[in-house]
Design a protein around this nucleic acid. Structure first.
Lengths: 221, 221
DNA sequence: CCCTACTATTTTGTATGCAAAAGAATTTGT
DNA sequence: ACAAATTCTTTTGCATACAAAATAGTAGGG
């Protein structure tokens, strides 16, 4: 969304701050750093082979982005959310995703349609062989292709950020091959409505998709 | 949105980082720091009576939030947006605001209705006496009351952040007493539809309100 | 006058040290 | 045995110094 990018777009050396920030984001997204877990400046400095200064800066940036939270007096923790908060986050996410679907239905062009279809084909392939890791990656790419097709970087960024935040608990619903196949099938229904260019239908279809997704996520957590 | 809060909720001393971050946010919002303007670590350190360390941290946090952007090789600048980017930002803002209106129409209760009405009364009062500063403040409070009424802090936070980002160029449309009155009147139409509890009408009404708002902003800039 | 090379200056990223605050452990008193 | 006080340790926020990178300024040559 309105957050700064941590991707290196130019050929600049990656600063220690960026390395640490990125490394932590990956660990949080992968569930290696659990919600509520405390992060330790000195330990991280040692782990990432840097001094406390860039560690502090990376931690501070991540608190500014809401990924980490600062304790009242001391300590920085991985943000955790109650069930109610998760539900509110999903609600907001539903709204954003539905808006994205509507916008895409209105402004779909040949290129973005192709990109979305390619991403869906990857989802289907990964689901059929029951490759969970590949499916998670393909699923993300699928949704990213939809965001890109909005042609609005701000919509794309908000949506991406919600996906990142909800990623760890969302990932738990993809336990079996059947789960993967079901998800990929759900995508197809969604795409049919988007490709119909009926904005209202696309929006509704995305809401339905997200609602099912949320229920499955609740069951899996 | 999903950014960390910079408000001090407990009785903790305000750190230099927080002071600097807040000070810069205020200056940007007030237009005292113009889009594209370069910020200078040493100058800020001197200005805020601190060393470079907290200045760097504050700047880094604000780049993480997208309020500032880092130059390719050096320098930190106030983020600036092309007309197209502003348009995209407004589009995203329209979606969020329309979603907020719909949610409020669905879940309005006595307390939130009262709060919104009180905020609108302040807008009307400020508009009638032609007090621009008071109107800007009341207008923000009005929109904040709507966000609060969603009962969803994530929706509220995204919406607030868009308002903060678009604030400087939006403020320019409130030049005369007539502008203020017109805006306050537009609010009333919006509220009628929200208070009707018709979610679709509320959503549409907010879209209309935002569309007019955007056109006026274009004219004033 | 323009271009290149060199030097000086500025900016950036980070390491280290220090003081204050907070928390944990130990000691003392009842 | 328990509570309060004291001491020790850890954490936090920040200042300062240093080295590397980037930029600006100057001199010399064509």
């Amino acid at each position: 969304m309105l957050t700064g990018s941590t991707t290196t777009e130019n050929r600049q050396p990656v600063s220690a701050v960026q390395r640490i920030e990125r490394g932590l984001l990956e660990e949080i997204g992968a569930g290696e750093l659990a919600p509520g877990q405390r992060l330790d400046e000195a330990g991280l400095a040692s782990r990432f082979g840097a001094s406390r200064t860039p560690v502090r800066e990376a931690l501070s940036r991540l608190t500014a982005q809401g990924v980490l939270v600062q304790g009242e007096k001391r300590g920085v923790f991985v943000a955790e959310y109650s069930r109610e908060q998760q539900s509110q986050m999903f609600e907001a996410m539903h709204e954003i995703e539905a808006a994205c679907a509507r916008i895409v239905a209105q402004r779909l062009d040949f290129l973005s349609r192709s990109e979305i279809e390619a991403a869906q084909a990857d989802c289907v392939k990964a689901a059929e062989v029951g490759d969970r890791t590949a499916y998670l990656r393909a699923n993300e790419a699928f949704h990213q292709a939809i965001y890109k097709a909005t042609g609005n970087p701000y919509m794309a960024e908000i949506a991406s950020e919600f996906r990142q935040r909800t990623g760890p608990f969302r990932a738990k619903k993809f336990a079996s091959r059947e789960d993967l196949l079901s998800s990929a099938q759900s995508h197809q229904a969604l795409l049919d409505s988007i490709f119909s260019k009926d904005a209202a239908a696309a929006s509704k279809s995305m809401r339905d998709h997200m609602a099912v997704s949320f229920l499955e996520t609740l069951k899996a957590n």
